[in-house]
Simulated assay, not measured.
Amino acid sequence: MMQTLGALYFAFGMLNWMTKSGLIGGIYNRPIAVANFTHFTVVAIAILKALIAHSAISISIWIIGALYLVFALAFTLILLRHPLKENSFV
């Protein structure tokens, strides 16, 4: 089970790595943005649920949960906003 989960994370990481130079946001690379948004949001909710049920969980889980929440919020912004053009400030 853990090898399957590791393969899933590796494949997801490779997908993100291969699209790193592409424009993301709005309609551009929308499936990548939706996949990342869904992943980080679901895991953040699951960790939050575990922390509410068991408040004595170690500080490392709190930190991981906070990081997942930050990434979930970041991908929410990426998903809902149009990307800036590279020369928009020049």
Rank of each mutant, 00 (worst) to 15 (best):
M2S: 09
Q3A: 09
Q3G: 03
Q3P: 00
T4E: 08
T4I: 02
T4H: 02
T4C: 06
L5S: 09
G6I: 01
Y9Q: 03
Y9N: 04
F10Y: 15
A11F: 02
A11I: 03
A11H: 01
A11R: 02
F12C: 03
F12E: 00
M14C: 04
M14V: 04
L15H: 08
N16E: 12
M18S: 01
M18P: 04
M18Q: 03
T19C: 07
T19P: 01
T19R: 02
K20G: 02
K20Y: 10
K20R: 13
S21L: 11
S21F: 13
S21M: 10
S21E: 13
G22C: 14
L23S: 08
L23C: 08
I24C: 07
I24M: 08
I24R: 09
G26A: 05
G26I: 06
Y28L: 01
Y28Q: 01
N29W: 01
R30Q: 12
R30M: 10
P31K: 03
P31D: 04
P31F: 05
P31N: 03
I32P: 02
I32E: 09
A33E: 03
A33F: 00
A33T: 06
A33C: 10
V34C: 06
N36R: 02
F37H: 06
H39F: 13
H39M: 10
H39I: 05
F40G: 00
T41C: 08
V42Y: 04
V43W: 05
A44E: 01
I45P: 02
A46Q: 00
I47V: 15
L48A: 15
A50I: 02
I52D: 02
I52F: 05
H54V: 12
A56P: 03
I57S: 12
S58E: 12
I59P: 07
I59V: 12
I59L: 12
I59E: 14
S60R: 10
S60Q: 11
S60N: 11
I61K: 15
I61M: 15
I61E: 12
W62P: 06
W62D: 09
W62L: 12
I63C: 08
I63Q: 07
I64S: 11
G65D: 06
G65C: 01
A66N: 03
Y68K: 07
L69F: 14
L69I: 13
V70Q: 08
V70M: 11
F71P: 12
F71C: 14
A72T: 06
L73Q: 10
L73N: 10
F75I: 08
F75S: 08
T76S: 07
L77A: 07
I78V: 15
I78K: 15
L80A: 09
R81C: 11
H82V: 10
H82Y: 05
H82L: 11
P83C: 05
P83L: 00
L84W: 07
K85R: 15
K85I: 12
E86L: 09
N87R: 10
N87K: 13
S88W: 15
